[in-house]
Design a protein around this nucleic acid. Structure first.
Lengths: 227, 227, 227, 227
DNA sequence: AATGAATGAGGTTTCATTCAT
DNA sequence: GATGAATGAAACCTCATTCAT
């Protein structure tokens, strides 16, 4: 006699899956559920029933709901990070512009290829709990750091205009985040990655405001005739 | 009952407060708690104990936890919205530039004046629940709408460069959001509002990338000699 | 809208009880349940349904199942401890014998008056968890300590025969424990406390074995003639 | 399948062990675990990992956790029972005293030789579940029964003093149980079995209380008329 | 026979919300 | 109005047991 009584066994027990695949199965189900209900509304029950496994199986692979979420975010942010390549100026065959364009296109492409994760990242990742918030924050911090350094280097090379590099980094990051979020939310096709990248690049290169009494960098922009 | 008549009233019952003030009291306590713990980690217990009122009292003024949160967000987003003024081109006494600058300065000023709310807005507002998410979304949508229209008008007037106005709206909104979030998180002083606005304006006006083989709108920007 | 949805309220909500009484109510229900099902078989559900309160109410008064159990054991062991009075030899008006008899009678009386607790103490108290075991153990250790000291003093006064006092303490404690347990289990009436005490006292005073070739300390006990 | 043919057999699969030995292996591991963690804290996982077998293997040899525990207790109580021999009075070559002494010595010896089991028996055996409790109880009942009969016979032969034999049985059993428990808990060496037996015997023979106004002992107790 | 992944019943606990006083 | 004890839905997680391989 068991300490906890057991009932009859139901037939479905899918044991043939290799360990790693079963983990994937759960991970995918979790992604779908988080995307649909949001982290806080999602329950482990939702996940296991989406995955078609028993509740206990979930805990065999993940310590708790937060842990699956964490793995999802980690993997996705790693993919994003991988699509960013440090820009080199030494190689004359690869223009800075094309490298910048590649990076933007890469990030947008990844985001559009993983819509659910992009949505989750921007909707749910913050606010899970303070320690998790800090992890997310530090991911962005790294991106900002990389960007800031690149911009500073760019200024030395005359490729980047005057101004506080860190602030430019924030502005660029924010602009890109919002663009991604909207692209995913509005359901833009993956093909538009190209066009979006172009607009982003144009934005970074020249802004869009064409004001008479220029304001900050007067001498450098004899843009008068454009007006 | 007669026997309990002499039971001392607890000091915390503060019955003298006008209804509206008590509501404020709770609202402020909630803001502080949400700022400190985040919406999901915050409990009603946290709020009432911060406010120094009884649990039941909370429900006398707010239908539920979400409702206080909602009111906080609503008030704050209204303040933000109010600091944005539709730009007029008819009045020669007020340059477009100064109006844009005013708007940026206003939003940044409001955000820095209400750090807690800014943090809450960007950390917790999304992910509360799907219906709330939609409300937040629609606030941003309105901002985007206003911005898009202004940009379109600007293009007609030659004040705004070529490109998809809606995309420019997203980019600008995102850049500003990130800037605000970082400003608040890093604890920048309110005085820096001015400097940040200037950088933002500069960014919108001219971006920062100075690439040789211009990329998108070559003819319009004979910026080469600026370099 | 709540984060956790709420259903209709049921009618029974017994809020009139003073805080202390409600605590008692739960405590008594817990005692009954532990007595009937044993600590490990008992669930919090059993307790609250026996007490007629909601599950949450239980956790308002006790941190967990172990804590109620602990309080029950603590109170009972305190009552037991209180029924033991240190024996004085200075007062000629109170013979040692009558004091010993009083102590035995007191403990037996308390145990018979609280059958359920006696049963719980001997059936469930050990094995709850290591830290709890230690607490129980230290209660007994104190009793043993008190008894050992008394016996040592008794030997000095010639009231207690030769032998290791601590061992005598264990033997006496064990004998009494088993007597109590059986008395409670067999459902002896409270009136038999008197008779049991007498037998216990007789046992401590003279054992029961009457062996010819006395065994251990022959010379010292010229009790042969008594036989 | 053919592709997996070379997969190494895990070392732990130890297929060479005869059935009976594997059973022993598990039983010993269980004993160790129960001794260390207690029945309720012990998990089947603890046991199988201590035994170095797979989880499923456990259930090949034992129906459930309770069953191993049961077997341990049964074996141990059988050993204890075997060390008790019914006392004969017909053989003049074997004094009653020496037979009693043998019995006590035997039980103490067995307990000290199997410390873990002794500890388990006294700490965990009760409280597993009601049906198990009953089995333990009935083991003790048998011992009590045997003892009671012997004592009654002893009274007829004048070897046992006056008093309720069943009560004497409880008292003796309890005294011995506590002595064993403490001996094991305190880690007394096996050599002390002898000394403990002697003290126990002395206790049964003459108690230790030497009270002036005697009360129970015969010669000293011209209480005949009270009866 | 042996394995260990999978199962799911059931226990514990939290906390938003209600309502008698 | 104010109070705070009471409520109970629902979440989380553990672990004895099963069974496909």
């Amino acid at each position: 006699m068991a300490e906890r009584k057991t009932k009859q066994r139901r037939s479905s027990s899918a044991p043939a899956l290799p360990k790693a695949e079963r983990r994937q199965l759960i991970l995918h189900a979790a992604r779908e559920v988080f995307g649909r209900r949001g982290f806080h509304q999602a329950t482990v029950e939702d996940i296991v029933s989406a995955a078609g496994v028993a509740r206990g199986t979930f805990y065999l692979y993940y310590a708790d709901k937060r842990t699956v979420f964490s793995e999802l975010i980690d993997r996705f942010s790693a993919r994003i990070a991988m699509s960013i390549v440090r820009i080199v100026t030494s190689d004359p065959a690869r223009s800075v512009e094309s490298q910048v364009r590649e990076n933007i296109r890469g990030v947008i492409g990844t985001a559009l290829a993983e819509r659910t994760m992009t949505k989750i990242l921007f909707t749910d990742a913050m606010g899970v709990d303070p320690s998790f918030d800090r992890r997310i924050q530090s991911f962005y911090d790294e991106v900002v750091q990389l960007l800031t350094e690149s911009l500073r280097e760019g200024q030395r090379l005359g490729i980047v205009g005057e101004g506080e590099p860190r602030v430019f980094a924030y502005l660029s990051l924010g602009a890109l985040k919002e663009l991604l979020y909207q692209a995913v939310t509005l359901g833009l096709a993956e093909e538009s990655a190209e066009a979006l990248s172009e607009q982003m690049l144009q934005f970074l290169s020249g802004g869009y405001l064409r004001l008479q009494g220029r304001h900050t960098a007067p001498a450098r922009r004899p843009r008068a005739k454009a007006r």
